[in-house]
């Protein structure tokens, strides 16, 4: 075992800090500037295209004028459905959180079962392969009939949409557990519970999070569509409502919010995944 020499302190640390800051600033600018420039360009183009008298869609400046309150104050609440976008998105996120949490638990447990048991795999896999191709909204009428209430129906749609990628990825991950780890567990005589928590979960974490990430994306897609149909507070119905009152500016503002929230959801799951998977790679 040879000792590697300690790296000598880099010269930039000994010099005044300014050059280091400049380099850091440069690298940030290199990442932030291009998308910013693109955004400004696109909005400019849009403004030009939509400024004619016969334009079907409002221009950015018009949207800003018409939906100013919506943009600057997401928190207003005048009762009923007349709320700021924050409250609509909060309602949608709550439904997604509930449905997605159930999907995560059920998906991981069923995935482990399918990954561990050849019999369960043979019996259930064909069924799941068919079920997972059913579009989310096709479940809505059935769940409305079963639950007789819009909120649990929406939560069920989220669940049934996001459970499949979680389940399938988990089962693939469990089947990919190296035989070596199973042998270690066998020699140590780990019981089922110890095997699950000490071997299966840690070695499957990257697969589980791949599934969770796909699942959260699908949930967010499904909730908007489902809410358009079930009504009530929620960003989906907000958009539908705006369409019915021909308020195109509001729709566009809401779409921007929907996109940003979807992006954040994806980043959050990916970030948690990176935290949990630290060291899980061989």
């Amino acid at each position: 075992m040879t000792d590697t020499p300690l790296p000598s302190p880099s010269p930039s640390l000994a010099l005044p800090r300014l050059p280091a800051f400049a380099a850091f600033g440069k690298s940030v600018a290199a990442r932030v500037l291009p998308p910013l420039v693109m955004l400004v360009l696109l909005i400019g183009l849009w403004e030009l295209a939509a400024s004619g008298p016969k334009a079907a869609l409002p221009s950015p400046s018009l949207i800003f004028k018409q939906s100013l309150e919506l943009i600057v104050d997401p928190f207003y609440d005048r009762g009923g459905l007349d709320k700021g976008l924050f409250w609509h998105i909060l309602a949608s996120l709550t439904r997604v959180a509930q449905g997605f949490a159930i999907a995560a638990v059920v998906g991981v447990l069923m995935g482990v079962l399918l990954g561990q048991s050849q019999l369960a795999l043979r019996g259930l896999d064909p069924l799941f392969q068919i079920l997972r191709t059913i579009p989310p909204l096709a479940w809505l009428p059935l769940s409305l009939a079963a639950f007789r209430d819009s909120n649990p129906s929406a939560i069920f749609v989220i669940f049934i949409t996001s459970v499949w990628p979680i389940l399938i990825n988990t089962s693939v991950g469990v089947r990919a557990i190296p035989q070596d780890y199973r042998n270690v567990a066998a020699v140590l005589r780990l019981n089922h519970l110890e095997f699950f928590f000490k071997i299966v979960l840690p070695s499957t974490v990257p697969y589980i999070f791949t599934g969770l990430r796909i699942g959260i994306g699908l949930s967010w897609l499904a909730i908007i569509a489902a809410e358009m149909l079930i009504g009530g507070v929620g960003i989906g119905f907000f958009i539908w409502d705006a369409w019915n009152s021909s308020n195109i500016s509001d729709i566009i503002v809401a779409l921007v919010y929907v996109g940003l929230v979807g992006f954040c959801l994806d980043r959050v799951i990916a970030g948690v995944g990176v935290l949990c998977a630290r060291g899980a790679k061989a």
């Binding site: 190296p178 070596d180 780890y181 042998n183 270690v184 020699v187 005589r189 974490v205 060291g279 899980a280």
Partner: peptide, 26 residues
């Protein structure tokens, strides 16, 4: 299998999410 016949595997088979000490500790 059982710990009275401990095995040193060809490809080490340490659990990568545990530290050296935790691997032995397990």
């Amino acid at each position: 299998p059982g710990p009275d016949r401990a095995v040193v595997f060809q490809n080490h088979s340490l659990l990568p999410w545990l530290t050296v000490e935790e691997n032995v500790r397990l």
